Amino acid sequence: MKNGIIIALLMIFSSVRSQSFKAYQFYDKKGKAVKTDKLVKELADYDIILFGELHNNSIIHWLQLKVTQALYEKKNGQIILGAEMFERDNQAQLSQYLNGHIESKNLKDSVRLWNNYATDYQPLVDFAKNKKLDFIATNVPRRYASQTAKEGIQSLNALSDKDKSYIARLPVNVTLDTPGYPEMKAMMGDHAEGTKVMNFISAQAIKDATMAESILKNRKPGKTFIHYNGNYHSKEYGGIYWYIKQKNPELKIAVISVFESDDPELDIPEKDYFPTEFNLVVPSDMIKTF
């Protein structure tokens, strides 16, 4: 009887130990699993990295930091950081913080920071500060994206020269040839007014085009520009990627796309999977930051 109980307990313990708990898995474009050391080695050869994210996913933010730190070592510090989460008209304050001229509290008081800044983006900003790296505020000020959604992209022509300096050079080409934009149109439904649909897409385009222009203006030969943005802004080679390639098709750009999965082994999803250079699969039940 005693031996039977011991054997039963060992079987239960063995079963528990055999369970797999994976937090993430990278794949290359061909579907081969990639270890992080190889990922970093390959990323070092790119001019630009568009690191997609799900804004509230804690493991992705942690991976952004770890990959950035590893790439810094691999490239001997020859990297530049930039992010959707900072808007162009806040660059001066962000640079003052990076240079040690203002404290963290002053930055929070003077910059439109996202609610999850402290947990998800401050570690990247502070890494840039400690390593004396450039960190570029790439996004359009949200007021201009909102104006575009309400009044159309043509309304931006009436802005002052100073205001226009925070936006991609006008006119911005808005077309449904851009990957992702037809999907946005479909999301609006068949009954949505044509003008309203195009204004909505134009608001997305002004963000994508501005971030692309910001990257192009601030990149430097020999350095890798790492840009952190919502997955939708670069998935399927649309958005930021598309606008960069319109201006400079010779640049070598790596897109890291993100996919959630219910599969505990984090195999490649069977549906809605469009691979880019690198593809990050994370558990759908990963702890969210908001």
Rank of each mutant, 00 (worst) to 15 (best):
A23D: 13
A23N: 15
Y46L: 04
N56A: 11
K32W: 01
I49W: 06
D37H: 15
Q25L: 04
D45H: 15
F21N: 09
V16H: 07
K30W: 08
V40W: 07
L50R: 00
L43Q: 04
K30F: 10
F21Q: 09
G52I: 04
Y46W: 05
I12M: 10
F21I: 12
Q19M: 11
G31F: 07
S14M: 11
E42A: 05
A33T: 12
D28T: 08
V16N: 08
E53M: 06
Y27F: 13
V34M: 12
I12Q: 02
S20W: 08
K41H: 15
S18T: 11
L39W: 05
K32E: 10
E42L: 04
E53H: 03
Y24F: 15
S18D: 08
A44W: 08
E42P: 02
K30L: 10
F26T: 00
I48W: 02
K38G: 09
A33S: 14
E53G: 00
F13W: 10
T36Y: 08
T36M: 13
F26K: 02
T36H: 09
S14K: 08
Y27T: 01
I49F: 03
L54E: 10
L39R: 08
S20G: 01
V40Y: 04
K30E: 13
K22Q: 07
I48K: 06
F21D: 02
S15Y: 13
T36E: 15
G52N: 01
L43K: 08
I49M: 05
Y24C: 05
R17W: 12
L50I: 07
G52M: 00
S18P: 03
D37A: 12
S15K: 12
A33Y: 09
T36A: 04
S20L: 14
I49H: 05
K38W: 10
D37W: 11
K32C: 03
V34D: 04
L39F: 07
A33E: 13
N56D: 15
S14T: 11
D37R: 13
K32H: 10
N56Y: 10
I12G: 03
V34A: 01
Y27C: 01
Y27N: 05
Y27R: 04
Y24V: 03
I48A: 01
V34N: 00
L43G: 07
F21P: 03
V16A: 10
Q19W: 08
H55E: 06
S14Q: 07
L50S: 08
